[in-house]
Design a protein around this nucleic acid. Structure first.
Lengths: 197, 197, 197, 197
DNA sequence: CCGTAACCGAGACGGTACGTCCCGTCTTCAA
DNA sequence: TTGAAGACGGGACGTACCGTCTCGGTTACGG
């Protein structure tokens, strides 16, 4: 999010960047998105407001970077390829379920899910950096399963991926029931029946 | 949302109620949730701010009622029961897809999906009045299909319902692709393979 | 200064008005004009900033009203008419000298003397309400002295008045020497020599 | 104003000094004192902010130097000594009147007249370099007139000088009427009546 | 049929946060 | 080492809304 043209990125203070990102995350979990003001982030981070406005175009962009920072260092997005498709998918979906159940993630993720409605640039970053990798990796694993004959090779993989992750997001978004690893397992078991042959 | 204790509902001005709700909807589609202020709604509706605060506890509650008002008069939530399960499900999911693709719905629905995070009372109404009926109706249709032997009667119907609606919401929420009736059909076709026998 | 068109003056809070004016005066004497921010006035007065901006167009306008409030209730501007012109003038100039020497007055008066440069509306009020009355009263006293033959009736009274007050303001503005009642007396004594016959 | 201890004056860039001073003057006449920020002066002069802060302690000090620069090269402050006191005084006062009527001078002079209230060091320079010379020269001319018997040798020359310049400054400061050479003449004519014998 | 108690429109109030401008300091790099 | 450039922590600007409050006016009901 931080590629603004004006200021000189080589002179950027890494110290401030980190302080801002972690102050943002703290405030999000403590008080939620609406009450997390730029002013409060700046104060908590011990930084001038301008230093935030210089490098990020909006509160949402700060949260986005903070969330990326949090995710970073996590697994390399590639799915396991143990030979057992069902287990590999369960592994992936359990990770997603845990993320969605983690309050740190939950609050920020949900907030960004709205903001992308109004901010096309943010929406792009969101798709490319936030969701794309995991979804693409899953699709790739399914492609490999098609090659090995485990699943139907006529299958529309986009819909298949949605059938895997969709139920989790449905539960999470609409708060109809808690998102758990058991639920993830149940989803994979059922989805496999649709994909087989 | 309008059951607050203090004021006397019998003396409530229906004229103001309607003006507020439609002003709210207008502003939401014109400018989005964040910029739709109570002040602006009051001004647009030709109403004092207090008249809003008297009857609704928050902006989200106003939007919620406005959205309900919009949905109202739509189909009676019960699913068709033509004997052809696949067609009945397609009918239902196409309706949902069209709603999600409708900007009027989109903006408000998405906004409320965040707010329920912070407002448990709203979350309750949301589940009961907004989502519950359609989801429950679908579950009921699946139960009837179990009874008639069309689908597996060991099936976990909660997960089955999520497998139907989840892919639509996934696409819509994450903006990975447009939500269309064709997509709804594809989802039903695939999900049927998981539910059969 | 407070005749702005927008807000309804009948609903104005007298309590706030007074609090603002005296907070402004306090801060002026404590910290000077530059450091007297609207924000600080509002905070000290226990008032929202908007309440200041609603009724005054600028910081200078607030100070102006505060200064007027201070002056108000003072002598009725009319000069004494004891029959002894020299004594009457000394009475008037001593009062002016005391004002100029009073820090409360000094700070605000000097600040306004700049601001009128940029704000024609303020300049008008300044001439009409702040300076005009005293100057006009002095001129009137001189006119009466002309009628009674005490002073030359060819005299240009505008210049005569300036010759009385000018030396005091010169000293005060340029800080060349302290402004005292003794100085006022000396000025009157000398000026009388120019006006006589 | 430019004698700060730290930096080495022999290495100072004359180019920058001039650019800063004239940028300051330009901005003062274009936008007034309040809107003439150090940042704007630096930008207009094509100079880093530090170069200003290195050599001047405050915005007022820059303006002061800029104003001195402007005055410099003007008449050598000494009053004419033609033998005709009245004409010599008129010559001097007309010059002052023209200065006060010149917008370039007006804006800066007025601004400094406030600042000296808060900055004793500046006040000193102001008295010594800005006002002192002209006032002292006038006093000297009056002394010479006392010696030649043209005017009363009991006269308090400080008050006499104030009686000459005071009316001009009074008009200028309080904006009661325009300051013109005609006015200067009228003042001298009247003041001469007080000083004679 | 006449108070009187409510809702209503309007909007002033004490506040919080916005996004911007500028302060004065500090750091980097070129000449 | 000076100077151009500009990032930094910070303070104030003037504006937009927040949610509460008070003000007339206008129904509409109970004595």
């Amino acid at each position: 999010m931080s590629e603004a043209r004006g200021p000189d990125p080589t002179r950027r203070s890494e110290r401030s960047r980190k302080a801002i990102l972690s102050a943002a995350m703290e405030l999000m979990t403590e008080s939620g998105y609406a009450k997390t003001s730029i002013e409060a982030i700046a104060a908590r981070a011990g930084v001038g407001k301008q230093t935030i406005y210089r490098w990020w175009p909006s509160k949402a962009a700060v949260i986005f970077d903070a969330l990326l920072d949090l995710t970073e260092g996590q697994q390399g997005f590639g799915l396991l390829e143990t030979g057992d498709l069902k287990e590999d998918l369960k592994h992936a979906l359990r990770a997603t379920a845990e993320e969605l159940a983690d309050p740190k993630f939950d609050v920020s993720f949900r907030a960004l899910a709205i903001e992308i409605q109004y901010d096309p640039k943010l929406a792009g970053h969101w798709r490319e950096k936030m969701l794309g990798p995991a979804l693409e990796a899953t699709k790739e694993r399914l492609r490999s399963a098609q090659r090995s004959g485990e699943i139907d090779d006529e299958l529309d993989l986009d819909v298949a991926v949605e059938m895997l992750y969709g139920p989790l997001y449905h539960r999470w978004l609409l708060q109809t029931a808690p998102v758990t690893t058991q639920h993830a397992d149940a989803v994979v078991d059922l989805a496999m029946r649709a994909m087989s042959r």
